[in-house]
Computed example of a mutant assay.
Amino acid sequence: MLRAGRASLVISRNISTSSVRRQEVVGTVGTPVRRPVGGFRGGILGFLFGFAAASSLSIYYLQQENKVATGLLLASVEELQQGTEQITSHLDRLQTVEKELAALKAASAQKEDVSKVRNEMKKVYDGLHLELLDLRAHVWGVEQDLQRFVKTEPVRI
Rank of each mutant, 00 (worst) to 15 (best):
153 E>C: 14
81 Q>S: 04
12 S>Q: 15
141 G>C: 07
137 A>T: 08
111 K>F: 12
104 L>S: 13
150 V>K: 02
19 S>K: 12
107 A>F: 09
114 V>F: 10
106 A>I: 05
101 L>Y: 00
18 S>V: 11
92 D>R: 00
91 L>W: 02
150 V>S: 07
85 E>R: 01
63 Q>R: 15
129 H>R: 09
137 A>K: 00
16 S>K: 07
125 Y>C: 07
13 R>L: 15
58 S>M: 12
137 A>F: 07
26 V>L: 15
89 S>F: 05
132 L>H: 10
123 K>V: 04
101 L>F: 00
137 A>C: 09
24 E>L: 14
8 S>K: 11
126 D>I: 15
126 D>L: 12
5 G>N: 09
152 T>S: 14
6 R>K: 15
109 A>E: 03
45 L>Y: 13
54 A>Y: 05
107 A>M: 11
108 S>R: 06
117 V>N: 09
102 A>G: 04
13 R>H: 06
41 R>F: 11
137 A>W: 04
27 G>V: 00
91 L>C: 02
103 A>N: 06
100 E>M: 02
69 A>G: 02
149 F>G: 00
88 T>H: 00
130 L>W: 07
28 T>M: 09
147 Q>W: 04
63 Q>W: 14
50 G>S: 13
74 L>V: 07
47 F>H: 03
81 Q>C: 01
49 F>A: 11
61 Y>E: 08
32 P>N: 01
146 L>W: 03
150 V>D: 11
142 V>I: 02
85 E>T: 03
106 A>N: 11
61 Y>M: 13
34 R>C: 05
47 F>D: 03
113 D>E: 13
6 R>Q: 12
32 P>H: 04
49 F>D: 08
125 Y>S: 08
155 V>S: 06
84 T>I: 14
146 L>R: 06
37 V>M: 10
40 F>T: 13
80 L>Y: 10
51 F>Q: 07
104 L>A: 07
81 Q>Y: 00
129 H>A: 07
78 E>Q: 06
130 L>E: 10
76 S>P: 03
105 K>G: 01
106 A>K: 14
118 R>F: 08
143 E>T: 11
4 A>K: 13
139 V>Y: 03
128 L>T: 01
7 A>M: 01
131 E>K: 13
143 E>V: 11
99 K>I: 01
15 I>S: 15
15 I>N: 15
22 R>K: 01
116 K>V: 05
111 K>L: 13
67 K>V: 15
41 R>N: 08
148 R>H: 15
112 E>R: 07
14 N>I: 06
17 T>I: 11
156 R>N: 03
130 L>Y: 10
